[in-house]
Structures are given as structure tokens and as C-alpha cells.
């Protein structure tokens, strides 16, 4: 029998994977992938809680998370293309332009 805790543990594992990616990635495109993984983990938790508590609010929040993710990708990729045209790289370590 699959309970709510199964889904929450799976969501926690996926969130940890995404967070590990955010910490260890240096390529900006790969960093975006890791944030998508974290958003999807949150979506799984919302859908599972919504299903097990018989409440529609969780699915609503999952929809809004998807909308936020879509707009984040649109703006973020636009900025990424601008960065690549200006500096010729999307590696985070090459953007150390604030020499103190």
C-alpha cells in the first residue's frame, strides 16, 4: 500500500538531487536543469497531498508552479543568450568580472 509518506519521501529525494545539482553545477544551462528538477519535486509533493487529503488546492498550486517555471525559462533563456553573445561563454566561473 502506497501512503502519502512514500510520495513525500520520493519528493524529498528528488529535491535533494536538484539541490545537489544547483550546488555542484558550473554551467548555467545545467543549473537551469537542476532548478527544474527541484520544481518538479515540489509538484509531486503538492499533487500527492492534494490526492490524499481530498483537497483541490494542492493541484492549483502545482498549476501555478508550472506557470512560474514556464515564465522563468522564457526570461532566463533570453538572459542566457544575451550573456553568451556578450561573453562567449555560459560558464559561471568565467563571470568573475567584479575584481575587488
Amino acid at each position: 500500500m502506497i501512503t502519502l509518506n512514500h510520495y513525500l519521501i520520493l519528493s524529498g529525494i528528488l529535491f535533494a538531487i536538484g539541490l545537489t545539482g544547483v550546488v555542484r553545477r558550473r554551467n548555467l544551462l545545467m543549473l537551469f536543469f537542476a532548478t527544474e528538477i527541484m520544481l518538479n519535486a515540489a509538484n509531486i509533493a503538492f499533487a500527492a497531498i492534494s490526492s490524499y487529503l481530498h483537497d483541490m488546492s494542492g493541484q492549483m498550486f502545482a498549476f501555478f508552479i508550472i506557470a512560474v517555471a514556464a515564465s522563468e525559462v522564457a526570461v532566463g533563456l533570453g538572459l542566457l543568450i544575451l550573456l553568451y553573445k556578450k561573453y562567449g561563454t555560459i560558464n559561471l566561473d568565467d563571470f568573475t568580472i567584479m575584481k575587488g
Binding site: 506557470a67 514556464a70 515564465s71 526570461v75 533563456l77 533570453g78 538572459l79
Partner: peptide, 13 residues
């Protein structure tokens, strides 16, 4: 928000 993101994406890219 989606409209703003669409315009921002078009203008930036």
C-alpha cells in the same frame, strides 16, 4: 505574468 515573460523573452533574445 506569462504575458510579461513572453514579451521579456522576445525582447531579450
Amino acid at each position: 505574468m506569462l504575458l510579461v515573460a513572453m514579451i521579456a523573452g522576445i525582447i531579450l533574445a
